[in-house]
Write a protein that binds this DNA or RNA. Structure first.
Lengths: 186, 186
DNA sequence: GTCTATACGGTGATAGAC
DNA sequence: GTCTATCACCGTATAGAC
């Protein structure tokens, strides 16, 4: 793999696991066996440019993954359960959730850097768009679809936070039980 | 006010607004007009001890505030709407949410420091306990009350994250519309 | 209890050889 | 394109006077 891709890949994992400020350039460099000079060659604006590039790459990956899950299931209900299952598995394997969340980056950087905030915003919008499309195909009205897709995104993101805090997958499991309730009874 | 309380108060606000790593000791000291020597007199273990103390104080404050709101309303539905309204007002006034969330600290520190993780965990448990008690008094079963109180906590926390990202209060407003739906149709 | 001055490590970033 | 050496700066933490 080329140096730039390697940098993006390792940095993405580290940022997701530990947040932005916590991860130093040296840590990324050591983990990827790349020199400081090479990094600044590919990312002249340094750490923040690297982060934004990571977020863009992450957007593509997440979109692809969730779309794959959603195309495999007929209803939003089934697709959401399957999505949450994937998150639970990821959490049980790695202890942290990588690949789907970036809450640490949002809460650290949303108020500090406008470009980063925008990149995060686009990411959430993409996720909501997928949920929304499925809800529409389920037969929900435009308005409900938009509202519910936001509620789904919020509750999943919040549940991941609770999983991190309680160091348990129970929060995700609980909402996986409760959310279908909501989707059926609309 | 005594130095120690002043330190806790200003640090709490800054940590909530900007996260843990982002806020330097110097920034806290300058904002509170306290010297470095005084800080290390009151908090010999430094920054992390200060953070944990802040989280404990925050737990008391949040518990008191939410309990006050919940005692003013008859049903969980009304109480939750009122709670979310408070959050929306706070967000519209200050631009960031202080006083109720600490997501930045959770996502930054949960995997890094066990004592901090524990303090955050206690905070969430307190909030969920209040929700749960009200749900029981609404007549829900034990099991549903526990599950729903977790879903409420998760969706509110997640919605605040989305508000931060989108720089809008719409996410909170949307879930304020959707959650009653869930509470009625159980 | 509070102050100032200082220590020391690590940070992001740059320069220049190859 | 990649390396090493070096930069200035800021972080937390400490020491000792008052």
């Amino acid at each position: 793999m080329d140096t730039k891709s390697l940098l993006i890949e390792t940095a993405t994992i580290l940022f997701q696991e530990k947040g932005y400020k916590t991860v130093g350039l040296n840590e990324i460099l050591k983990a990827s066996n790349v020199s400081k000079g090479a990094l600044y060659h590919h990312f002249p604006d340094g750490k923040e440019e690297l982060l934004i590039t990571c977020l863009h790459a992450l957007k593509e990956d997440i979109t692809t993954d969730i779309e794959a899950i959603f195309s495999k299931h007929l209803t939003t209900k089934d697709a959401i359960i399957s999505t949450i299952d994937t998150l639970i598995n990821s959490f049980e394997k790695r202890g942290t959730i990588t690949g789907y969340t970036f809450s640490s980056i949002v809460s650290e950087m949303a108020t500090m850097s406008e470009p980063v905030r925008k990149a995060c915003s686009e990411l959430y919008e993409n996720i909501e768009r997928i949920y929304c499309a499925k809800l529409l195909s389920d037969g929900f009205s435009d308005e409900t679809a938009v509202s519910v897709s936001l509620l789904l995104t919020a509750s999943i993101e919040g549940a991941m936070m609770l999983c991190l805090t309680k160091q348990s997958t129970n929060p995700l499991k609980t909402i996986a039980e409760q959310l279908p309730n909501l989707l059926e009874k609309l």
